[in-house]
């Protein structure tokens, strides 16, 4: 276990960032404290703690099966933690009822690893779905404008009437990102946004994430294995080991860390 006072482990700060320019504040948007989650005898999260501030990007790095996806599913309320607190905009997610949770979810975007586009709907219907389901009072003309704006943000306005099956993997990822953006969320949770994409498309998605973050000043929690994504999109990198936030620091500092638990992640 790392020594918390060591320079190699938990250090708060903001990386200069390669192309990140959005301002960050000290307003806490997500505060996770003493989070525990198990599946049978498999303890996935054990006393996990993390704070995300407005306008900040944190990339969560960890081995496969270390509980990264479980973490963000607990944040959005898709999984219920065994113990601990997850405050999102000051509300403790595990204690919220269905209506309060839906209200909170309207402020959180979630990009699924598999994109999760509805196969039976066109791109337009996919993007309209969250708008209509969250009871947002908008006219059809406003809906059309919002759909087109989100599609233009990801550079795919021409696909509006296409079906997801007609799109390439990278395009589907962009449409999923557009669907995430349509509600103008304050927080976006990304579950392995570049998995399954070739390096060039992966880089395009990373650039898009950074661009969107700069434009809308969202706070983002990004689950990723992709070191390019970690390097380019992160203000801070959280290293998840044995269910704990083992280290939290900038990419550059973690890269030069001599900690034997952290070093292997940066040797790729």
């Amino acid at each position: 276990m790392a020594d918390p006072d060591s320079n190699d482990t938990v250090i708060s700060g903001v990386a200069p960032g390669i192309s990140r320019s959005a301002p960050q504040s000290k307003e806490e948007v997500i505060v996770i404290s003493h989070l525990y989650k198990s599946f049978g005898s498999n303890r996935v999260l054990q006393d996990f703690n993390l704070t995300l501030y407005k306008g900040q990007n944190i990339v969560v790095l960890g081995k496969s099966g270390s509980g990264k996806s479980v973490l963000i599913k607990c944040i959005i309320g898709l999984l219920r933690p065994d113990a601990g607190e997850i405050f999102v905009f000051g509300k403790n997610v595990p204690e919220l009822n269905h209506f309060a949770l839906d209200e909170l979810r309207a402020r959180i975007g979630f990009l699924f690893q598999s994109n999760a586009l509805y196969d039976s709907m066109t791109v337009r219907d996919n993007l309209e779905f969250p708008l209509r389901r969250h009871w947002i009072q908008v006219t059809q003309a406003q809906v059309n404008d919002m759909v087109m704006e989100a599609l233009e943000d990801v550079g795919l306005a021409h696909t509006v009437d296409m079906m997801p099956v007609e799109l390439s993997g990278g395009m589907r990822k962009r449409i999923a990102l557009a669907r995430t953006l349509i509600l103008k969320p304050d927080i976006i949770l990304y579950d392995e946004p570049t998995t399954g994409l070739d390096p060039i498309t992966g880089k395009e998605i990373i650039d898009l994430i950074v661009e969107i973050q700069n434009k809308y000043n969202t706070a983002s929690l990004i689950i990723s294995h992709d070191m390019n994504c970690v390097r380019l999109a992160s203000d801070l990198v959280a290293v998840l080991i044995e269910g704990k936030c083992y280290a939290l620091d900038t990419y550059d500092r973690l890269k030069s860390s001599t900690d034997p638990n952290v070093k292997p992640f940066f040797e790729q």
Binding site: H98, I108, L117, Y118, F129, R133
Partner: peptide
């Protein structure tokens, strides 16, 4: 098959996140 494929491709989770039961 339809619901099964929606389940394994996380479409059901996406629906829940979109404020739908």
């Amino acid at each position: 098959a339809e619901l099964g494929s929606m389940k394994v491709t996380e479409q059901i989770d996406a629906m829940e996140v979109s404020g739908t039961n």
